[in-house]
Nucleic acid binder design. Structure first.
Length: 568
RNA sequence: CGGGGUGUAGCGCAGUGGCUAGCGCGCCACGUUCGGGACGUGGAGGUCGGUGGUUCGAAUCCACUCACCCCGACCA
């Protein structure tokens, strides 16, 4: 490609709206252009890179016995009602109607469709296992898109689905996919952490996320420096600091004027936050529920959602709190009726807690479970935090932010049972197919790769996913000798299959060309100039190299080859 | 969904009721330059997000609306 003919141009200045490095650099280098909130056009340079990423994913999926297919993005809503995921996705699913008023959805994922496909084709255990995958545009009406390609409403996803006879088979498929994922991310120069994750409302057994650790990430990952344990914070199991259980004292009211938060309460009474119980009110599918946990701990909303088996969970608003007769700032389970109460086991770790008195400006001292209050559900709803201890080895847990680039699930038989995908086993008995699903955000890989691989000058493309391998710069292109030599070299490079971007602009100064080359960040830069031509040489320089190397014009192609070889 | 912010030329921005709406970059033409974001001369390019209103007069004031960005989805 000749830059004089390339439709996109680079931006001299940083776009003001872009916060994260990948977003900023993709806009500046002319990789993407925004069309709407969370909707981007992939411009020619990005598209070449994305096709390479897709090909890497394809090769690894094929190597793991995956069969590529392509399913429709446009799907009847009825299909989603059969598994009740119409409700589970809620507003996150784009909905529309056809001309007859028939409800349709733009697919956020494809379990329903793929299960129906397999249902019509697999009848016997002899037909299993099967792994199907596709590269496809997914639609999700995210509440808040952000950070360029990191969180968008339309994106390219590789989604794979495994079908096995039983859990042992699923384990094999799952391991094969996990290994394929590691290979993909290694080839794209994204150093991932594989972290345990919540399996969600579907209720599968295992689930793992692949995350790029970076400060700009959206997810919080809890890691253990002792044993290597890693889990998404919403899933992480840890041990919070335990404390002595004192002899119970009588319940006693205490005046706490103006005190509404745990921090001010503890300070006011001269106690630790762990000596209080925190009260939080949630709306679970519209029902206001009361949640309590030890004051120094946080509620893990994913665990809470799982415990309540609800689709939508959010904090209750002021009106709902008032209508439920709850007193924000001074609430506790004591004397509460007509409302579901969920408690974390931490309410029994310690004792003689300070809790709200369900009266403004008033708290109780010495509240103890179950003497003074009860709960309808007692289950782990605590958020594991850095500083807690690892459940496996006891080391102190740490946390990091991360961008999720892949996610794998063991689904079990939820979809096969709901949609009637059965096979006959060796005894001639009908059995539901055991499923797994495996997603990679292809477009997010591009963002993550740039997030990981850039410097102050621009992108540092990993060679396997670079749009072109070589950035050929002709300096002073109005000089006939330069135009001739650079043009010849360009043709020779392409002749041996080396993808080359040729800066043949006559009107751009050297500095402009060098800065653009650094910004776009192809692995190797070649410079043809009058100065170099006087020694019949061309300058070869890796994107991150300190020094350029002079090579005879005739040896340039070979030099590029070896340079790319070492760069890979 | 709540809060904050921004919409003026391709991009970045200025313009608080009064003449033909400006500046930088970019773009076009010619010339000079030519190894890390050159220079000169001349030019092209705007329904000021939209609708309605106030006014002799609106980019500017008011109302509504749309779009986009950021923060929060927050423990009381």
């Amino acid at each position: 490609m000749r830059i004089s003919r390339l439709v996109t141009r680079t931006l001299r200045d940083d776009p003001p709206e872009a916060e994260t490095a990948s977003h900023r650099l993709m806009l500046r280098a002319g990789l993407i252009q925004q069309v709407a909130a969370g909707v981007y056009a992939y411009l020619p340079l990005a598209w070449r890179s994305l096709q390479k990423i897709e090909q890497i994913v394809r090769e690894e999926m094929d190597a793991a016995a995956g069969q590529e297919l392509r399913m429709p993005a446009l799907q009847p809503l009825e299909l989603w009602q059969q598994t009740d995921r119409d409700a589970a996705f809620g507003d996150n699913m784009f909905r529309l109607e056809d001309r007859r008023g028939r409800p349709l959805a733009l697919a956020p994922t494809h379990e329903e469709v793929v299960t129906n496909i397999v249902k019509g084709n697999v009848q016997s255990y002899r037909d299993l296992p099967v792994i199907l995958y596709q590269m496809q545009t997914k639609f999700r009406d995210e509440p808040r898109p952000r950070a360029g390609l990191v969180r968008v409403r339309e994106f390219t996803m590789k989604d794979a689905y495994s079908f096995d006879a039983d859990d042992d088979g699923l384990d094999d498929s799952y391991q094969a996919m996990a290994q394929a994922y590691r290979n993909v991310f290694r080839r794209c120069s994204i150093p991932v952490v594989m972290a345990e994750a919540d399996s969600g409302a579907i209720g599968g057994k295992d689930s793992h996320e692949f995350l790029l650790p970076t400060a700009s990430g959206e997810d919080t990952v809890i890691t253990c420096p002792g044993c290597g344990y890693a889990a998404n914070a919403e899933k992480a199991e840890g041990v919070y600091p335990s404390q002595e259980t004192p002899d119970p004292l009588p319940l006693e009211e205490v005046s706490t004027p103006g005190i509404k938060t745990i921090a001010t309460l503890a300070e006011f009474l001269g106690i630790t936050e762990a000596q209080t119980l925190k009260a939080v009110f949630y709306a679970a599918d519209g029902e206001v529920v009361f949640v309590t946990i030890r004051g120094d701990l946080e509620v893990n909303e994913v665990k809470l959602k799982n415990a309540l088996h609800c689709n939508e969970l959010r904090l209750a608003d002021d009106e709902e709190v008032e209508r439920a007769g709850l007193v924000a700032g001074s609430a506790s389970a004591i004397g509460l009726t007509h409302i579901r109460k969920i408690a974390d086991p931490s309410i029994s770790d310690g004792g003689n807690f300070v809790v709200g008195a369900n009266n403004p400006d008033t708290h109780y001292r010495n509240a103890n479970y179950p003497r003074d209050f009860d709960a309808d559900i007692i289950t782990d709803i605590g958020l594991t935090q850095p500083g807690h201890r690892c459940a496996q080895c006891g080391a102190t847990l740490e946390s990091t932010r991360g961008v999720e680039v892949g996610h794998i699930f063991k689904l079990g038989t939820f979809f096969s049972e709901a949609l009637g995908a059965f096979y006959l086993d060796t005894d001639g008995q009908q059995q539901p197919i055991t499923m797994g699903c495996y997603g990679i955000g292809v477009s997010r890989i591009l963002a993550a790769a740039i997030e990981q691989n850039h410097d102050e000058r621009g992108i540092v493309f990993p060679p396997p996913i670079a749009p072109y391998q070589v950035h050929l710069v002709g300096l002073n292109m109005s000089d006939e000798n330069v135009a001739q030599a650079a043009g010849d070299l360009y043709d020779r490079l392409w002749a041996v299959g080396i993808e080359t971007l040729f800066d043949d602009r006559e009107d751009a100064a050297a500095g402009v060309k060098f800065n653009d080359a650094d910004l776009i960040g192809l692995p190797v830069r070649l410079v043809v100039s009058p100065r170099n031509l006087r020694q019949s040489a061309v300058e070869v320089r890796g994107r991150t190299a300190d020094e350029a190397e002079m090579v005879a014009l005739n040896d340039a192609v070979g030099a590029v080859r070896s340079s790319l070889g070492t760069a890979c």
